[in-house]
Structure formats: C-alpha cells, structure tokens
Write a protein that binds this DNA or RNA. Structure first.
Length: 244
DNA sequence: ATTCGGACCTGAAAGC
DNA sequence: TGCTTTCAGGTCCGAA
C-alpha cells in the first residue's frame, strides 16, 4: 500500500512522539525512512525495520483489531500497533541498518538530474513506468505516484527509457520532486487501507489526475483516462496527452 | 539479460 | 440472490 509519501507521513508522526521512549529496554534515538522502509533506531546502534507492503498500518495507541499482527509496547505504556490484512508486510530487528543500503538506488526526493540521466541511459529498453517503480534504480515510487508523475510529465507509461529526450527527462525529474512533495504535504493517498500513525486518512487522493480514474475526463483535454497493464500492474494515463 | 506469470494473503467490488 | 472473477499503495522467484 504505502509508497514514499505515506511512509514519510508515518515517519514524521512517529518521530515526534516516540523518540526518547524505550522499546524492550532500548532507547529510541530516531525514526528514519529509506525507500518504503520505516526504520526505528536505538541508542545501541541496532534498528527495528518495517515494510508495510500492500496493507500494513502502524498506528500509535491503536485499538487491537482483527488484522492486528503485533503490538509494540513502550516503557511509558503507550503502544504501536501493526495491522496488516494481507500479511505481506514484515518487521525485523537488525544490528546495523547499513545492510539495507545495498538494495536501493537514490531516494526519489534527493536524486539529482545527472544521476537520473545516467541511470536511465544504462537501461534504455525498460518501460519508463517500470523504471520509476524499480527500487534499485530510484527509491520510493510505486504504482500511484508513477502514474501521476508520468501524467504531469506528459510521458506515456510504456515509453522506452532510451527514447526520452533531454527536455522530457528534465520535466520528469522536476515532477518526481513536485508530486511527491505535494503528496507528503497532504499526508499521502488513502484509497482503502491506508491510515497514518494517528489513524487518519491522507488527503492526496483528491489531487489524483489519473490513478484509478479510468473513463473519467482528462483535466487537460477532452480525452478519457485509459488503463492498461504494464509489468502486471495497472497503468493509468491520458492517451491524448501521453503519446508513445 | 530482460520479461512474464505466478506466488505470497485477504476481502471488497464488479460481473454474470 | 448467489456464485465467479477481478482487482488492490509491493516484492520476490523461477521459467521462458
């Protein structure tokens, strides 16, 4: 479920509340995010790492529900409740969170134009949507935001990376930042299962231009939004604004 | 090397 | 009204 904006929203909320508390005797020093991972750091250098996958939730002092998988208890009696209907999500303790670095490319909000260009150049055949969703190339983008970023950039999701021109790459780079930052500002997108750490929904859905809007009118022209399959995932786009 | 489908799970919504 | 199919914010694995 959650992509960068949703995990980042949870991170910011947890950071404010749980730093300084203790979990199984160990003091929490920071709450970080890497790609779609949420990482709770302890004073002894170890970390507790979460991946929420499709339906995971982390809710502060949440009520235990049918799909609650784990309740973490802090020393002051407050709790962090992990719910996950589909059971894809996971958590684990690691001695050193550095080991996670090998799995991910640059953070989507931090990548610079040059390294984006170089990375695109080294995978010319892949379709741009799949490129954006590949965490090894660029970290944090999933199915919602890849569609929204490509719509904003007027690039067809099935466009081969090697066929993008400099102007398109520059636009893409700008829109990755722009869309993700705005989505963080609105606390992410709640479609079904996503709630933030305070149990609230994210408001960014109302700014979606294409994601899950098949059949509705494009906001820039008169065409209807189409949905196709790319790499097993739904891709939503405007066939008029985003041509191959 | 890439690409594809399927696997992991549960449940809601749509289709017939 | 039911029964069946499709779909879902992710990622991993093995077979073409």
């Amino acid at each position: 479920m959650p992509e960068l904006p949703e995990v980042e929203t949870i991170r910011r909320q947890l950071q404010k509340i749980i730093v300084g508390k203790k979990l199984s005797g160990k003091e929490i020093t920071a709450v970080r995010r890497r790609a779609k991972l949420l990482i709770i750091d302890f004073k002894d250098g170890s970390s507790l790492v979460f991946h929420l996958k499709m339906s995971g939730q982390l809710i502060l002092n949440g009520q235990p529900l049918k799909h609650t998988r784990k309740i973490f208890k802090f020393n002051d009696g407050s709790t962090l409740v992990f719910n996950d209907m589909r059971k894809f999500g996971w958590w684990k303790r690691v001695k050193n969170s550095q080991i996670l670095e090998k799995d991910f490319g640059p953070e989507a909000l931090k990548i610079n134009l040059i390294s984006l260009k170089n990375c695109l150049k080294s995978h010319p055949k892949i379709k741009i949507k799949q490129f954006l969703m590949n965490q090894h190339f660029i970290a944090g983008i999933g199915n919602i935001y890849s569609d929204e970023i490509l719509f904003a950039s007027k690039i067809h999701p099935a466009k081969q990376v090697g066929k993008l021109n400099d102007r398109q790459i520059k636009l893409l780079h700008q829109n990755i930042k722009k869309i993700l930052e705005k989505a963080v500002e609105y606390k992410g997108s709640s479609l079904k299962d996503y709630f933030d750490a305070s149990g609230q929904k994210g408001d960014y859905v109302k700014y979606h231009q294409v994601y899950q809007k098949e059949g509705s009118k494009c906001s820039r022209c008169t065409s209807k939004i189409k949905r196709i399959k790319i790499g097993g995932r739904s891709a939503h786009f405007c066939p008029n604004c985003q041509k191959l």
